[in-house]
Simulated scan of single mutants.
Amino acid sequence: MNLKNSFLALFLIAISACGTSKNSSSDTTSLNETLEQKNRMSISLLDQVRRLPGVTLRGGVPVFNKNNNTLVAGGNSEPLYVLDGYIVGNSFRSVNQLVQNTEVAKIEAITGPDASFYGTRGASGVIKISTIR
């Protein structure tokens, strides 16, 4: 009788161990979200923008990698910044004063025909920043 109880206990442990593996994917997802949030809090806005595909720093401000032959209206090579749907302008320093890196939820880089929605101001590309406000 004691051997049957031991076998039953081992069987129940094995089944319960299999059942918890399904929850590990949601635990991994929440862990990834937590790590992403902590990283976002420790990374400056400049570094977050610089990490976007096609963006590099020139003179300490982010610009899109483009042909040097490309002429931009007004001579400004900085992208247009849009913060939570509102156009801030073509100055990283302006947008950097308005938003804290801990409030950033998403940053998008828009170039080419998609940036034409913003007219000539978006000729050097657009960086859309969404915050958690």
Rank of each mutant, 00 (worst) to 15 (best):
P113G: 09
N96G: 03
N2Y: 08
A14F: 14
G60L: 05
P79Q: 03
T34M: 11
L52G: 01
L31M: 15
F92L: 06
A73C: 11
N90H: 05
V88M: 10
R121L: 15
L71T: 06
N5F: 06
L98S: 05
N76V: 09
G112Q: 06
S116I: 08
Q100A: 11
A14I: 04
S16N: 11
S24D: 05
K66D: 09
K22G: 13
L35A: 14
A115W: 00
V99D: 02
N39G: 10
S6W: 04
Y118R: 02
R58I: 02
T28Y: 15
T111I: 12
S130E: 12
P79G: 04
D27Q: 12
K106Q: 13
Q48I: 02
G89D: 02
P79W: 02
V88C: 08
N67M: 09
A73I: 14
F64N: 00
G125Q: 01
T131A: 04
N96W: 03
F7P: 04
K128V: 15
L10A: 09
L71F: 08
G19D: 04
G75D: 06
K106D: 12
I110L: 08
V99Q: 03
S42K: 14
N5Q: 08
L80V: 09
D47C: 02
T20E: 09
G54N: 04
T102M: 06
S77F: 01
T102N: 09
M41A: 15
G54A: 04
I107S: 03
Q48F: 10
Y118P: 01
I132W: 01
L3C: 03
S21M: 13
L80H: 00
E103R: 12
T70Y: 09
L46M: 13
T28E: 11
T120N: 02
F64M: 10
V55R: 00
N96Q: 13
E36T: 12
V63K: 00
L10R: 04
L57A: 07
A109H: 00
E36H: 08
D114G: 11
N5T: 10
L10T: 02
S26P: 00
S130T: 06
S77Y: 01
A14E: 07
A17G: 12
F92W: 09
K128T: 04
L8S: 11
G60V: 05
K4L: 15
N5Y: 04
I87E: 02
G74W: 15
L35E: 12
G59F: 03
I127H: 01
G75Q: 04
N69M: 08
T20K: 12
T131C: 05
C18N: 10
L71M: 11
R133H: 14
M41T: 14
F117H: 07
K22M: 12
N23D: 05
E36G: 10
Y86L: 02
N39M: 13
S6Y: 08
F117V: 14
G54P: 02
E103H: 11
T120H: 01
M1I: 10
F11G: 08
S44T: 15
N67C: 07
T34Y: 13
G60H: 03
E33Q: 14
L71Y: 04
A17N: 11
G119N: 07
K128E: 15
N76R: 02
T70G: 05
T102E: 11
I127Q: 01
V104T: 07
G125L: 10
N32Q: 15
A17K: 05
Q97E: 13
N65P: 01
L10D: 08
R58W: 06
S30F: 10
S42V: 11
S26N: 06
F64T: 01
T34I: 08
S6P: 03
A105S: 12
F64C: 07
L57R: 02
